[in-house]
Design a protein around this nucleic acid. Sequence first.
DNA 1: CTGAAAGCGCTTACAG
DNA 2: CTGAAAGCGCTTACAG
Lengths: 329, 329
Amino acid sequence: MTTINDIARLANVSRSTVSRCLNNNGYVSEEAKERIDKVIKETGYMPSQSAQTLRTKKSGVVGVILPKISTETASRVVSGINAVLQNNGFQLLLTDTSLDPAKEIEFIRLLQAKHVDGIILLATNTEKELLQAIEASKVPIVALGQEIPNIASVTYSDYAATQDMLAYFLEKGHKHIGYIGVYEEDPAVGVIRKQAFMDKMKQLDLVLKDNWVEQGDFSIESGYEAMKRMVESDKSNLPTAVFVATDNMAIGTMQYLKEASYRIPADIAVGSIGASTLSAFVEPTLTTVDFLNEEAGERVATLMLQAFNGKKNTEKLRHSYRLIKRDSV
Amino acid sequence: MTTINDIARLANVSRSTVSRCLNNNGYVSEEAKERIDKVIKETGYMPSQSAQTLRTKKSGVVGVILPKISTETASRVVSGINAVLQNNGFQLLLTDTSLDPAKEIEFIRLLQAKHVDGIILLATNTEKELLQAIEASKVPIVALGQEIPNIASVTYSDYAATQDMLAYFLEKGHKHIGYIGVYEEDPAVGVIRKQAFMDKMKQLDLVLKDNWVEQGDFSIESGYEAMKRMVESDKSNLPTAVFVATDNMAIGTMQYLKEASYRIPADIAVGSIGASTLSAFVEPTLTTVDFLNEEAGERVATLMLQAFNGKKNTEKLRHSYRLIKRDSV
DNA sequence: CTGAAAGCGCTTACAG
DNA sequence: CTGAAAGCGCTTACAG
C-alpha cells in the first residue's frame, strides 16, 4: 500500500505539503504540485480513508436504515438518495432491519461507531426508545416517510392522497366505501391514512358499516384475506368501493374479488397507494397514488447535505404525489 | 465522544487492558473485566471503527458494485448478500454504476481507498481494463453473474436454463422458434444465452430464419420494438414461439403481440428468464426461469466470507434454477 | 495478568 | 511557500 510518506519521498517534499496539495488548502508552489501530481498518477495513490476519518471525523459515508432492502419502495428511495449523495462524494452504508424496531435503534448506534457522517432513517414507528436513540445521536439524522420530533424529514402526503382518492370515488358515484389498512404502530401508513379516511367519510356524511373496515400487514396475502373477511361477513351489504392502504394489499384484494366473481370496478372498485410496477399490469389496472419515492429520496438526501453544511434545521417537508386514475375505479 | 482512554481511566486500568478485554484476546483478570464492562455499559462506549481500521486494516465493510440499484434483481441479490454478511458483523457499502463500465473500475479503486474488506462485483462485462483493475486489487473480489478469470464467482445457469426452455417449447409442439436477446458486451446474458439457443436449435435440427432473431437492451420497450420488427419483417412467416432473454423484454414482446391481435400462446408462445414479480401478473402469466437471485446473493456472500478466512480460491459456482411453467407457452 | 511504547496514515496549527 | 511536530483512537508485541 502506498502511503502519503511514499508520495512525499518520491516527490521530494514533506508529507505536509502532499496533504496540502491533496486537499487544495494552504499554499503549495507550482513546481511542487507538479511533482506531486506526477507521482500520485504513477503510483495510483489514494489516501487512506480510515486515517482521514480518524483525523478529520469525516468519513464520506452516509448510513441508511431501511425496513427492508428488497422492496420496490426501498430500491426507488435508495436510488434517489444515491443519485444525489454519490454526486457529492458520499457512499451509502445500507442496513436492513427486517422490520424489527429494535434493530432501528441498534443501527443508529452501530452506524455512529462506523463514523458515518449522517444517517437517513426510514422509520416504521416513532416509539420512545427510537426517539431517545435519535436524540442521543452525535451525527445528524434525517427521516423519510415518518414525521419525527426535532429532526428534519420528508414525509409523504398520506393524508391528502387518501382524501383525494375518496373524492375520486365519490366523483365516480361511490357512496358506500370500505377501508383496508395496517396496524397502528406505523404512524404514516397505519394511523394517518386511516384518519384521513375517517375524517373524509364524516365530512361527506357517508355511512360506514363496521364490517367495511379491515386490516392487513402489507402483504398481498393479507389483502386477500382482509377482503375475504369483509365479503364473508355480510354478502348482502357490501361497499361499492374499497380504499386499500397499500398497492400490494390492493392486489390481494383484487385477487380475492376476482376469484369470488365480483367485477372490478362494476361491482366493487379498488383504489390504493403506492404506484408499484405491478399496479400497472394487474387486471384491471389499479388506480393508485404515486408518492414519487425516488424524488423523495433525492429530497431527503439534500436535507442530509444541508445538515452537513451546519444548517441545524428541523424542517418538515411534505412530498407531493400524483393520483393515477386507471381501470379499477 | 468517549474513547478507550476514558474507559481506561474510569475503570482504573491501562488502555491496553481495555483493548484486550474488548477483543477477548490476551489475559485480563475477572475483576478488571467486570470494572471495564460496567464502565462500557454506563458510557455506551463503542470503539472508533476508523481507528480500528487504521490499525488492523479490517473495516467490517464489504463493498458491492451494482449495475443499477433500483432493479428487482439487484434488490433480491442485495437482500441475500446482506442476510449472510450482516449476520457475520459486516455492513454493505453500495455503489451504483448506472450501467457505466468505466464506473465499475473506478469503484473497485475507490472502495479500496475506503478500506473495505472485500468487494462483491456484479459485472456487466469482462473487458480487459476491468480484469486489470480486479487483478490489481489489494482486497478479495468475488463476482456474481459473470464468470471472471482468477476469481471466485457464482454464475447463473444461463446455458442450461435457455436450453431447458427450448426443450419445453418443443414439448409443447413448437418447431419454429425465434430469439430476442441483448448486446454481446454482456457475456452472461448477451453471449451465453444466445449460444445456448443456437446450439440447441442446431442440435434439434430446427430451421431458424434470419428475421426470427432480434435484439433489445433489457427494457420493456425494447422488447416491444424487437417483436414489432420481427412481425413486420415478414408477417406470413413467423415463429410459433419466441424465447426472450429477459422478463422485461418478454413483457414488452407480449404487449406488442396483444396489440397486434396475436393470441398468446395460441398464435405465438413466449418464454424468458428472470421470474420477476411482474411475470406472475401479466396476462397471460409468463413462463420464465427463476434464477433464485436471493440465494445466489447468499452464496456469493459466503464465498466472500471464505476469502476472508484466507482460503484463496477461484471456485466457479454455477447456481441452480427453476423453470416456471405458466400460461404464455 | 498488566502497562508503556510504538505505530497505523493522515491533517493541522505553528514556526520559519 | 514549506517542514517538524503533535495527535486522532486504536492494537500489538514486549517487558515485567
